[in-house]
Write a protein that binds this DNA or RNA. Sequence first.
DNA 1: CTTGACCCTGACGCAACGTCAGGCTGTGTG
DNA 2: CACACAGCCTGACGTTGCGTCAGGGTCAAG
Lengths: 253, 253
Amino acid sequence: MSWTVGELARLAGVTVRTLHHYDRIGLVQPSDRTASGYRSYGVRDLDRLQQVLVYRELGFPLEEVATLLDDPDADPVAHLRRQLRLLRERVERTRAMVAAVEKEMEARQMGISLTPEERFEVFGSHDPARYDAEAEERWGDTEAWSQSRRRTAAMSKEDWLRVTAEGADLERRFAAALGSGVPADSATAMDLAEEHRQQISRNFYDCPPEVHAGLGRMYVDDERFTAHYERIAPGLARYVSSAVQANAGRRSG
Amino acid sequence: MSWTVGELARLAGVTVRTLHHYDRIGLVQPSDRTASGYRSYGVRDLDRLQQVLVYRELGFPLEEVATLLDDPDADPVAHLRRQLRLLRERVERTRAMVAAVEKEMEARQMGISLTPEERFEVFGSHDPARYDAEAEERWGDTEAWSQSRRRTAAMSKEDWLRVTAEGADLERRFAAALGSGVPADSATAMDLAEEHRQQISRNFYDCPPEVHAGLGRMYVDDERFTAHYERIAPGLARYVSSAVQANAGRRSG
DNA sequence: CTTGACCCTGACGCAACGTCAGGCTGTGTG
DNA sequence: CACACAGCCTGACGTTGCGTCAGGGTCAAG
C-alpha cells in the first residue's frame, strides 16, 4: 500500500506544501519515488507522520521532533506514552483556562474585579516544550484538581460568594493569629488549619490530611500561592503552611 | 496602578519582546508613557492583554484578534462567551486525541494495525480559527461523543476486540444485503440498522433513534465516514445511511 | 490526443516573534 | 556622589513553518 502526496495530505489533514516541507527538512521523507519522480509514501511513513503531527500539535518545534523521533533508544511505545502524558496535561491546562474564563465572567457579572495575578494565573506555566516530569509532580494530584474545577464551575453566584467569603474570613483569622504571636504549631493554629482542610473538602475537593500537607508545602514552594498569602500579611504563607503541616501530623499521627 | 513592560511580561508569562511587538502592531498599546519614554500599562491594558492571550492560545492570528477586539459591537462578555465555547471545544478535541493515542497503543500491544483513516481521524477537523458554528453543529452532540470516548478508553483488550468484531460483522451483513439487492428501506435492512443502533448504545453511548438518524446523515455528509464504508463496498455509505434513516422513521413514527 | 487533475522544483513572502547592538534611565551601594 | 547594574528604549536582522505563485512535467479518461 502506498500513497501520493495529495492522498496523504488529504488523509492526514495537512497541505501538500507541508509534506514537501517535511521532506525537505528530512522530517518525513517518502520511502520511495516513482520513475517519474513522484513521492510515494509507505505505511512506515504514515506512522512517522502521525507521530510528527501529535508532537507538532503539542507545540514542539519540528527540529526537536526530528531528534526525538530519530533517537534510536526511544521505542515507539515510549513516544506514545509521552504523548499521552502531554496531551492529558494539556486537557487539564485547557480546563484550567475554561475555569479562569468562567471565573472572569462571574466576576464581571458581580461587578468584582480580579487581581492581576489571578487573571494571568493560568498563563503562568505555559511552556509547551516542558516534557519533563515537573508538571506531573506538581499537579500530579490531577483528579482532585479537576474535581475542584468541576465543582466550582457548577456553583451559583451565591455559592461562589459564600465560598470566597468563608475563605477570606479564615485567612483573616490566620493573619490575626500570626499577628498576636500564636505559634504555628499551637493547638489554636492547628484548629484553624483543620478548619481550612474541611472548608476545602466541603467546597472544592476531597482533601485528606496527606493531600492537605502537600497543599501546605505548595504555599511556600509555589510563588503564586505564596504571593496570595503574602498580600494579606507578610509571613502568612509560611505560617499557614507550618500550621497545616503540624495539623496533618497531628491528624495522621 | 500601573506596570512597566518587564513587570507585565512577568505577570502575563510572555517576553518583553512580545509586548514590544504588540505595541508596534497596535494590538496592545500602553495607555501611557513616562517622561523618559518608558511604557506604562494600566488596568485596561491588562484586560486587553488577557483577551489577546486567550485568543492567541486558541490559534487566532493576531490581526484577526485585533479586529475582534476592536469591534465596537462586541461587548466584553460576548468575547468571554466565545472563548469559553472555543476552549471547551478544544478540551474535547484534545480528549479525542488522547483517545486516539490510547487506541494506537492498544493496537500496538495487540499487534493490530489501524487503518490510515482511523489513525488520522483526529487530525481531520483541525482548524483552529474555525469559530463559526460548524463544529458545534457537527459535534454538537458532545456529551455522547465524550461518553463514547470514556467508554472505549475503559475497555479491556478483549472488550475492544469483541466490539470491533461485532461492528465488522454487522458491516459485512450490510454489504451482503446491498450486494443481493435488498432495498435499503426494506424490513431486513431496517432490522440491520436497528441492530446497529443497539450496538452503539451498548458499546459506545446512548443512541436514541433521532441521534441515530443524525449519524446516518453523517455517513454520507462526512467524507471520513463515507470513506470508511466505501472501503468495504461501493455504495455502502449511502445504503447504510438510508437504512438507518428508514429505521429511525419506523421507530419514531 | 487532448484536457484536467495532479505532480515536480525553485523562489519569494509572511507572521510572530528571538536575538543582538548601541544607547539611555533609575536606583541602591560604597 | 559616582558608579555599577538591572531595566528600558529603538532599530534591524534572523528564524520557523509554512502559503503562494511560477514554470513545467505526468497520467488517466474520454
